[in-house]
């Protein structure tokens, strides 16, 4: 469903992502883990056709993102790490806007909106201007927007930031139920707990390189760790083996 082939992205001299290849099956929840500045957001942005790769290819549902961007985007929902919402629009107006960009016809759109607003407990706020929303409410509105067109693929960058425990629980359940319905979920996160709980497979990226992919069990084996869970495996795998190596730069 998602296919990345030798994806490389350079920012000047810095290689933010380096020949990353990856495949995610339909209906899978894939976790994308890595320390700060590892290249998760960059990978996702290239994957969504927002950034042009330096080299390599990305395809979503069989559509090459560079060559058929509109088709690829039509089947994909995206939740960025720092989402933008028009502050002067109401929740409903915002959703209508996004829905129209996906060319959903209005009776269907109305129905989807009502369902999603209900699900994310935003119904009573839907006619308020977004500038009056709390951080978590904005986050949930973005989640609504990304699901309006019933995407086959959902790409999420750091979904849990700023969401309360109940919301986190619901979000996890949502991802699981989406996956059960056949949607592919690609999820970047810092939270090992989340990855452990809902991801079938996990990829670990460090300094732009994919250093490990597999199910939990496979990762434990790779890290040569018997117990301690994913956290120790993660720390072990992303530990800097060469202390003198140049540091990844933070913006």
């Amino acid at each position: 469903m998602i296919r990345l082939e030798n994806l490389t992205k350079h920012f000047g001299k810095l290689a933010a992502v380096e020949s990353l290849s990856l495949e995610v099956e339909p209906g899978e929840v894939f976790g994308f883990l890595g320390p700060n500045g590892a290249g998760k957001t960059t990978t996702i942005r290239v994957m969504m056709g927002i950034l042009k790769p330096t080299s390599g290819r990305a395809s979503l549902g069989g559509y090459d993102v560079a060559r058929e961007p509109e088709k690829a985007k039509a089947i994909t929902g995206f939740i960025p790490d720092r989402p933008f919402i028009y502050e002067k629009l109401s929740g409903t107006e915002f959703l209508k806007f996004v829905g129209s960009l996906h060319q959903i016809d209005s009776p269907l759109l109305e129905r989807r909106m009502a369902d999603l607003l209900e699900h994310f407990e935003l119904s009573e706020w839907k006619d308020e201007l977004v500038e009056g929303y709390s951080h978590g409410m904005k986050q949930r509105l973005v989640h609504c927007a990304s699901l309006l067109h019933e995407p086959k693929i959902l790409v999420v960058d750091e979904p849990m930031v700023g969401i309360d425990p109940k919301g986190t629980r619901q979000l996890k359940d949502l991802f699981l139920s989406l996956a059960k319905g056949g949607t592919t979920v690609f999820l970047s996160t810092h939270s090992i707990g989340v990855a452990e709980e809902i991801c079938q497979r996990v990829g670990i990226i460090n300094r732009g390189k994919l250093i490990a992919v597999g199910t939990m069990a496979e990762l434990y084996r790779m890290a040569r760790i018997n117990g301690g869970g994913l956290e120790s495996a993660f720390l072990e795998l992303t530990r800097d083996k060469e202390p003198g190596a140049p540091d990844t730069k933070e913006p």
């Binding site: 056709g49 985007k73 960025p80 933008f84 919402i85 060319q103």
Partner: peptide, 12 residues
Amino acid sequence: RDLELVRSTPAP
């Protein structure tokens, strides 16, 4: 700042 949002949708 709305570019990322707009560009990630299939608008022509």
